[in-house]
Simulated assay, not measured.
Amino acid sequence: MTELALFDLDHTLLPIDSDYEWGQFLVRTGAVDAAEFKRRNDAFFAQYQAGTLDPVEYLEFALGTLARYPRRELDTMHAQFMDEVIKPAIRPRAVELLQKHHDAGHLVGIITATNRYVTAPIARALGVEHLIAAEPEEDAQGNLTGRLVGTPTQGPGKVEHMHAWLDRLGHRFDQFERSHFYSDSHNDLPLLSVVSHPVATNPNATLASHAARLGWPSLHLFND
């Protein structure tokens, strides 16, 4: 493998935020107290968009919600979430972009601040084997405890986790002739600034401005 291709997930490969939509799904299905959960979920989402989110605080909130349910019940809810929310949101151009890198023999991975429990089935649906995500702790029975393992995969944390993931695979970042990272958000500037080929993908206004100043290409997957 001579090239590395990494992708953010929410608003990059998907036209939605999977973490936020999972919360909305729990509200709609009555799995959580609607008013309180929506208030907190909306506040965290606004902080994320503004670049002020405390990732540990948010993950403790999100994982604490997941920990309320036995794993079997949680998995049933997640399967419904995939059918009703995620699969209809998958767009052909995003799948084609991933396939282009797969066909070229690149090492392809998704790297997201959203936790692995929510995102692992999404990565599989997109045909991506490798996922770097926030890691929820599990007990001996496979139930989620509500605690985070390690550090969040957000901002500079994505760079740290990328290197650790490559090391586990027996690779080094500097061995790749080219490295690509596709993201929509200025929150990902640390990793976008490290790779050789950053691509502002469906970029928010802050990232679009930054990309224009530096001459980074912009890609819009969801305009059609």
Rank of each mutant, 00 (worst) to 15 (best):
A134V: 13
A140P: 05
H102K: 14
H101G: 11
I86Q: 04
A133L: 08
G142L: 02
I122E: 13
R116H: 15
I111F: 11
G146M: 11
I110D: 02
G127F: 08
R93C: 00
Q141S: 15
K87L: 15
P136V: 10
Q99S: 11
A133C: 12
T112F: 08
G109T: 06
A123Y: 05
T145C: 03
E138D: 02
A140D: 14
T119D: 09
D139E: 07
T119V: 15
L107H: 13
D83K: 11
A94V: 03
D139I: 09
R93T: 13
P121K: 12
L97F: 09
D83S: 13
L98I: 07
H130L: 08
D139Q: 05
R124A: 15
E96C: 00
K87H: 12
T119G: 12
L97Y: 07
I111N: 05
I122K: 12
V85N: 02
T112V: 07
V95D: 00
D83C: 03
P92Q: 12
T119I: 06
T114Y: 04
I90R: 06
A89P: 13
K87F: 04
P121E: 01
Y117D: 10
I132D: 08
N115P: 04
V95I: 11
R124Q: 15
V95Y: 00
Y117V: 05
V118I: 15
Y117E: 14
A140H: 01
G142W: 05
I110S: 01
L98Y: 07
G109V: 02
R116Y: 14
L97G: 04
N143R: 09
A133V: 13
Y117Q: 08
V128G: 05
